[in-house]
């Protein structure tokens, strides 16, 4: 799914240059749940952002489904993020003014689907995460675990090629985290970052990063 060669990414923290990813070379296959692990500051979130096309690669090569990301314009990257990548964040990032159902529906309306297809996908995704009953509730009426399920439903409803999840269980208790991981397992290609051994146990493949390099 991803082919990475000599990838580099750095940024400045004040005047200090942080080399977050250093000469990383890696092939990431699709179809399974992959965990990117490592201590804080190891570059795992940066790598996930690069894989999600929300940070631009600075040096080296990064290909997604055979397409070189460095050669893409902003429009093409927007298209890919819109339809081929689903995002799940630690803080859920649901729109507070919309119900669970509307949150899932919102990004589908950008895909050029007809009303029935959108409705079917919303229902299917919310059923899949077990929240169809709560579809009319606003985020403020949902627990943390339920909010994360809505976020997952929102991501999978797009039927993306890959799901990218940054610490998806970090804001949840162990029991809820397990429920979330049960949902994510079997969702096809899932790339996630985590510190949590419980989450790591769900991963078929793990990449361990230290100082921006694979160990």
């Amino acid at each position: 799914m991803y082919q990475i060669k000599d990838l580099e990414f750095s940024y400045f923290l004040g005047k200090e240059k942080i080399e977050a990813i250093r000469k990383l070379t890696l092939d990431i296959p699709g179809g399974s749940l992959i965990a990117i692990t490592g201590p804080s500051g190891s570059g795992k979130s940066t790598l996930l952002n690069l894989l999600g096309l929300i940070e631009p690669p600075q040096e080296g090569s990064l290909r997604f489904l055979g397409e070189e990301i460095r050669e893409m314009g902003e429009k093409r990257k927007n298209e890919i993020r819109k339809s081929e990548i689903g995002f799940i964040f630690q803080q859920f990032h649901l729109m507070p003014i919309l119900s669970a159902e509307e949150n899932v529906r919102y990004f589908l309306t950008k895909l050029g689907l007809d009303g029935k297809s959108i409705g079917d996908r919303v229902e299917e995704a919310l059923e899949q995460v077990g929240l169809w009953e709560h579809r009319k509730k606003k985020p403020s009426e949902l627990s943390g675990g339920q909010k994360q399920r809505v976020a997952i439903a929102r991501a999978i409803a797009k039927k993306p090629k890959v799901l990218i999840a940054d610490e998806p269980t970090a804001s949840l208790d162990q029991k809820t985290g397990r429920e979330i991981m049960d949902i994510l397992t079997g969702m096809g290609s899932v790339l996630l970052t985590t510190h949590d051994p419980m989450v790591q146990a769900y991963a078929k493949i793990q990449y361990h990063l230290v100082d921006g390099q694979l160990i």
Partner: peptide
């Protein structure tokens, strides 16, 4: 807004 942009909004 970051989430909107991440999900492909220009």
């Amino acid at each position: 807004i970051g989430n909107l942009r991440a999900n492909g909004e220009s």
